[in-house]
Write a protein that binds this DNA or RNA. Structure first.
Lengths: 205, 205
DNA sequence: TCGTGGATTTACCAAATGGTAAAAATTTCT
DNA sequence: AGAAATTTTTACCATTTGGTAAATCCACGA
């Protein structure tokens, strides 16, 4: 069995597991957990359904694996917020990193959004263990900056929520955004300028 | 047959149809379209499955009915934005109406978010017919205000996206928000102050 | 080259699910 | 009350879906 043992995975194992995860990311992000079928994932990965179940314990295992892997990438832009930098620029850079992430990894954004939307039934532990401590740490950092008068007084938690909401919106609500904007236009270029201006105004003076 | 004819619906029809729609709203908003089952909806509505199919043509019919009814309510806060009012106060009031909506109708917000997340497969026509014209109209209004120097220059479209994103976030990502905030705290009270301050700063000077 | 263990396919299955037909029950109208 | 129309239940059905058992295939090291 590929899982459970301590053996290092073979070439074939690495190739197939990542093919499955990539296919699953497509399917889960488009149709949600229940809307995705193993047959769809299998066909998109170019493998048979039983072959997929040779590599993963089941549908839920694939989904959880995907979410766990995603979590690290997802948190990275926030991790990079540097306590020693300039507060305004650090936060504005964070906004841009988060927006770039929505642009480059929209499938991941939608996978995550779908899971949270349904009450985070499969990722809650991960949220408590990874997201919460990081969130608290960065809220404390921003509070410290405010106490030093390097930022205007505001609620760090709702600031972060606003950053998350505005950046992820472009990936999660892409179908609505592209319907409302001119065709052929790149939403992200304008969003980048808009969000920079908005949060800059919020964070200065 | 209850549908298709022109007869006015009976007491029983109104009661049962609305019981079904309320139950369906619970189930669809919690589990998404594919994750919801007719049996769940039936049991939550206190009716049998075939009885539900007596009132609606099928699962999709229930879902579309729900989304169509929702659309009107959903658009209402934006409709109320008054061209003759003060630009800043009109937009700030809109933010508060939208936030109140997320607080009062979180199920509806999540139903809508789930549909958009999956590419709006069943509500796209409605978006084109109802949302798009209203969006364009209000964008033109804000542009006019800017041209009259009553608002600072900004992209009306992305302003509206930011309002949608930040307000709906509290309903759509409720499980994440409540996990990150202190227990027992009301997120909406603080969100209201935060968003008012943020958008006020953006819109003044 | 041949055996061995990992990889893949074939052939299934049980449960869940959306939906239907028709009988039975109930309400409504005269 | 009794006929007619509406509403609800009972008994199904076909398909989909997650998952399994076992046979077969195949890569690779000795």
């Amino acid at each position: 069995m590929p899982d459970g043992s301590v053996k290092k995975p073979s070439r074939i194992q690495r190739r197939n597991r990542s093919a499955i995860l990539d296919a699953a990311l497509n399917v889960f992000s488009r149709h949600g957990y229940r809307g995705a079928t193993l047959d769809q994932i299998a066909s998109e990965a170019g493998l048979s359904k039983p072959n997929i179940l040779y590599y993963f314990d089941g549908k839920e295992d694939i989904h959880v694996t995907l979410l766990s892997q995603l979590m690290e990438t997802w948190l990275d832009p926030l991790v990079e917020m540097n306590p020693d930098g300039d507060p305004v620029e650090e936060i504005l850079d964070y906004v841009q990193r988060k927006l770039a992430m929505a642009k480059e990894l929209p499938r991941e954004s939608r996978l995550f959004a779908g899971e949270i939307l349904q009450g985070a039934p499969r990722i809650e532990p991960e949220l408590k263990n990874s997201l919460k401590p990081l969130f608290d740490e960065k809220c404390a950092l921003i509070s410290a900056w405010i106490a030093q008068d390097r930022l205007p007084p505001l609620d760090p938690r709702h600031l972060i929520f606003s950053i998350w909401a505005t950046t992820q919106h472009y990936a999660d609500f892409e179908s609505q955004v592209s319907l409302l904007l001119f065709e052929g236009e790149d939403p992200y270029a304008n969003a980048s300028a808009h969000l920079d201006a908005m949060f800059r105004k919020l964070l200065t003076r």
